[in-house]
Design a protein around this nucleic acid. Structure first.
Lengths: 166, 166
DNA sequence: GTATTTGCAAACTCTTTGCAGCTTC
DNA sequence: GAAGCTGCAAAGAGTTTGCAAATAC
């Protein structure tokens, strides 16, 4: 399920090529910031998603001297050209992940520890087809999120701790 | 598919009873604001969803003298006790709808006119069961949203208009 | 009567905007 | 060199918080 480093590099290269092409087509400039943000997001391990602030701080702690505004701008551009996926999970900031790395997948969020797991179930495609037909829509993409309680593992109940009053 | 007025009243009454019970159980107070917000949300026609600001203004334009903060508080409480559902559609404010009125359903958002349609497809339950088992989670609820382009009707391309530069 | 809830305004968080200076083409 | 992009700080939008006054129990 996880991806080896050489394969990872290859995927990142593919992503950069797509970005090249997109920037060319749209007559936009190839700034180093745009490629850095792309890289940073593509280096995320599976099951990990990142918000703008964390990404900004992480890049600042490295050699980059990027600004928050540029992170926002670049990330929007990457979402637009389909290289990055944006998620709006319930009661969380917007979270981002690479679009090309892992097969298309959906998400399960634990109500207690807030951990996010990924899964894949092909029958969602059937629903998509049926509904697209019956509601006259050319369905381009979807977001499927399950919310539940971990039944095994050390689920930490972060949320409950937060809410606890004493 | 739509609900007659007498049935509507009955559903609202049922919602109020559940709220009564919840407030009793939690030792919270039965304030008129909480019931007014519930009512206002339950009066929404099908396919309509409301955000906090619109709800606040709508109530202010009626006989109510509710504050924004109270709308936020009440609505959170109603979500907690399961009477109201909160949605985080892509690039939209949080939107709310009644939980008891129509059968559980999912949503299709048009990428262009931003209209929201509702649909029902039972096979989502199968996916839920399978994934809950394989990822060891007691899945309580889900959010399924399709994003597409209307293929018929007068789809107004609101979004494209907004983005247009000339 | 006491504790909770409300209303208001101020604070906070996340995101966008305006603009001078820098970079890409 | 012109247009686009960046960085910064300030502004905006949506939401939360603190506190005095009002209300439920």
């Amino acid at each position: 399920m996880s991806i080896s480093k050489p394969v990872m590099k290859e995927i990142l290269q593919r992503a950069k090529n797509i970005l090249d092409e997109y920037l060319n087509d749209q007559n936009l400039r190839k700034t180093s910031e745009r490629y850095s943000v792309l890289e940073e997001i593509y280096y995320l391990p599976q099951d990990e998603h990142i918000d703008v602030e964390t990404l900004f701080l992480r890049m600042r702690n490295k050699e980059y001297t990027i600004s928050r505004a540029t992170v926002y701008n670049s990330i929007d551009l990457l979402v637009e050209c389909g290289l990055v996926v944006k998620h709006n999970f319930k009661d969380k900031n917007a979270l981002y992940e690479p679009a090309l790395t892992y097969e298309h997948h959906d998400h399960l969020v634990c109500n207690n520890c807030l951990k996010i797991k990924e899964f894949l179930d092909p029958s969602i495609e059937g629903i998509k087809k049926r509904i697209g037909k019956s509601l006259s829509s050319d369905i381009k993409n979807h977001s499927l999120v399950f919310y539940g309680d971990c039944t095994i593992e050390n689920c930490e109940n972060l949320k409950r701790k937060e809410v606890a009053k004493d």
